[in-house]
Nucleic acid binder design. Sequence first.
RNA 1: UGGGGUGUAGCCAAGCGGUAAGGCACAAGACUUUGACUCUUGCAUUGCGUAGGUUCAAAUCCUGCCACCCCAGCCA
Length: 559
Amino acid sequence: MDIENITPTNFIEEEIVKDLREGKIDKVITRCPPEPSGYWHIGHCKAWVINFETALKFGGYTYLRMDDTNPSREQGEFAESYLDDLKWLGYTPKAVIYASEAYFEGIYNLAEKLIMKGLAYVDELSQEEQLKMKGTLTTPGINSPYRDRPKEESLKLFREMRAGKFPDGSLTLRAKIDMSHPNILMRDPIMYKISREHHYKTGDKWCIYPIYDFAHPMEDALEGVTYSLCDITFRVHREVYEWFVDNCWDGEVKPKQREFSTLNLENVLLGKRYLKQLVESKYVMGWDDPRLLTIVGMKRRGYTAQGIKNFVKSCGVVASESTIPFSSLEYYIREDLNKVATRAMVVLNPLKVIITNMEDGVTEEIEIENNPNDENSGKHKAVFAREIYIEREDFSDNPPPKYNRLTPNGIVRLKGAYVIKCNNVVYDNNGDIDHLECEYLKNTKSGQEGSNIKVKGTIHFVAKCNSFDCTIRDFKNLTKDEYLWPGKALAQGVKIDEILQQNSLVTSRAKAEKFLKTATPYSHYQFMRKGYYTLDKDSTKDEYIFNSTISLKDSFKKN
RNA sequence: UGGGGUGUAGCCAAGCGGUAAGGCACAAGACUUUGACUCUUGCAUUGCGUAGGUUCAAAUCCUGCCACCCCAGCCA
């Protein structure tokens, strides 16, 4: 890696370049520290992208570290899911580490060291008493009566805490900083608590657990992390982080915490506790419901990892608050899907068309490009026959201005096949259109001489004999449009039923070309002129279910 | 009312004393066997939260003010 050839693109990279040049560090090591207590969503994704991409840019690496220091919240199921998510996103951690297994002993030793320096003490105050003596935002706190007990006594008590001599919640280990500090987090923060909850990883080995403010900087230090990149929520914790690093860590390289703003999307409900609520109360199909912006949900919806990463990168690395319109995410998803999705024809709302000058039982093979933007993608075969289906909205007996699809006596091209002319509209008893009688114009087949006849429009279709019925799942926004920040509304006490949109999952039937029988879950398709779709994992051999990933842009303005 | 953070277009965002990049959205047009994609054009004419100051020159430096966000779990 040559520092001189690296152009920093944000304030964190600028600092890294400086540190590298000044020789303060010689490699960039970051970390991705999820607490296994829920599934990742796009917000977390930003943190992982920044940690991984930053390290990558400087030739460094990133650890995946389960920040599992609280036995009451964590589950192995979640830890497993992160491994899959990260792999899907395309990142490979230097190692997968469980803080509980790898660092609990080391953190404990550092705590003892701090006690012996006279900078930590065992407190006997109850939680309520501690809260009372903490002071407020504008008034200082009061020292605990146990604050100045001899360090030997604290050490003895701390060892006894570990040995299980005291009941849960009875004692805590606290850092001796400053009870009148203007930053409340600096008022003798708690380093250890007593808890006999069963830990999913370490079982009952420990009955004391380190608290985040102490645990995190020590984990970073023990791991050799040089930059601990987290979201702006932790900005106020930086002072505590640095205090612990300065007072506990003798290593040459001291980890630095730097913060960037969280990712907020308009009209999207994020936040572990809310997602959990949706899942547990069965508002959605599960953590991987395509309406959720969890990694697994987006994957099932048909979003691509590259699209998500491009979007996250487009948001930049800054410290200012922002809320991005959903359309911005959609742009990056479409942009990537356009490159990778295989084209296919599917009629979502079929209207039967009889090609009167085509004999029954006779079929003609046609070819469809798998992806016109990718020369190497090849073609697949489809069929033209007497009985076909077109999209109901592709025919109108009362066309609006600039309508360039099929009309009575009008012509239109069938994608990949012939130009057809509508000779007759057959109505049913209710006066609705039952089917169309059309003729195909000879010599207008795609690729043939005469195929360059000018037509206003091209529509997609499927031949009855080359199609199968499938299910389409369409997703509307989970929450009502008027709630730009649904999470904030919930925090302010609005009931979840109030903010959820009714019928956000709409199921319908469609006629898909037979080629789509080869689809596998999570593969990407563009149903031409409609949108991008992916096969849902609920599909069976007899029942294909396609999830609508996102529609194509549509610039046709009715009226 | 304590501490910290942030204010550049409808939404993001570059800018680091030399005269407002880029993207999304939007609008108009070209192309098109997907009304997609692509392409072209327009989109802050002294305006960068605001009021002053320094300077030949300020979004950039200084001072005051205003607005918004975060912090008082034995959560992370």
